[in-house]
Computed example of a mutant assay.
Amino acid sequence: MVQAYETDTGSAGPEDPGQPVAGSGSRFRRLRTIGPFRPWRGDGDGGKGPWRRGIVLAGCAVVVALLTALHAQIPNRIGNLGSLSETFLPWLAVLTVPPLLVAALWRRSGTALVALSLPVVVWLNLFGGLIADKSSGGGDLTVASHNVNAGNPDPEGTAREVAGAGADVLALQELAHGQVSAYRKALSGTYEYHSVQGTVGLWSKYPLKQVAPVDIRMGWTRAMRATVATPQGDVAVYVAHMPSVRVKMNAGFTANERDKSADALGEAIAMEETAHVVLLGDLNGTMNDRALQAITSQMRSTQGAAGDGFGFSWPASFPMARIDQILVKGAEPVDSWTLPRTDSDHLPIAASIKLR
């Protein structure tokens, strides 16, 4: 009788759809008790409201905003920390804001959500202009640059792929001594004129003159200069491969050799008398890196002025930084882009410029 009585009164298990435990209304109420779905008014957390929760998250958002906006103030005295942060500066907010946003919603913190607007605004102010396509027509000269990698397993194939971009002037860096002939052979049908100086080379559809190596204080040749006689007039073209940088646990961002070479190259460009100047090369640094100021302070980035997006060029497998550059002086960039991947660990880059 007791068992029958319990059954008649509707004592049901969780599978009974008529009971609150498994009903849709119950599921909704349970959902409202989880993380960001809980009411945002003061409940739990000692009765703290949304403006008193998540203070630590808000502080983290402010720090990200300050590091992004004031990156130039991060000192280089300790392990070149400033240059390291500037190399990957666009990624600082990209990698930190999304998890902070999730945490702010989970904590139901209005304060943290408001604070997160700060790094977003700073990021858009610094990099928002790179997102839009700024290319236009009317270029007089198309140039391309590629660090081909000294260990490239297919130099001829790489040369043909880059030549297929149709550039009037092509610069190559990290030319291994034993592979120079392969590049010459592959490019001879496209470019009538060329010169190789040390580990850098320049190929051109127009005559080259006044070709010479440029001393960037390395002890061997990794930079050169040539005058390209284009139909619109002479253009001084520099090709450079700055020393490599490394991140070491005991030394930080080892970039001192690169910095010295950048200063030397900047001095050479500052003394240039030709009205139109183009720099093509692997600078092992981005336009945000203060250590390249001797160069970047007097030249314009084609990607920043006429590109579509960030134009990251390294590493080729998952580009995270634009350390390969095409910079101009006395010329107007009208287009800038990256080329398809080759057998190198860098992506080739190209730009179209108008000589003014």
Rank of each mutant, 00 (worst) to 15 (best):
A4D: 12
G13R: 05
P14R: 11
E15K: 05
S26V: 02
R32N: 12
G49T: 08
G49L: 11
G49K: 03
W51N: 04
R52I: 00
V56E: 03
V63D: 00
L70R: 04
N76G: 10
E86I: 05
L89D: 12
L92E: 02
W106G: 10
R108S: 09
S109T: 06
S109C: 01
W123F: 13
G128K: 07
D140H: 07
L141Y: 01
L141C: 04
A144G: 08
S145K: 03
V148M: 13
E156K: 09
A171E: 12
L175S: 03
G178N: 08
S188I: 05
Y193S: 08
T199S: 15
Y206S: 06
P213Q: 07
A223K: 00
M224V: 05
F253Y: 15
D259N: 05
E272T: 10
H276D: 14
L279F: 09
L279M: 07
G281K: 09
N284Y: 07
D289P: 02
A294F: 06
T296R: 03
T296I: 12
S297H: 10
Q303P: 00
A306D: 05
G309E: 08
S317I: 08
D324S: 10
K329F: 04
E332D: 15
L339T: 10
T342C: 01
H346I: 13
L355W: 00
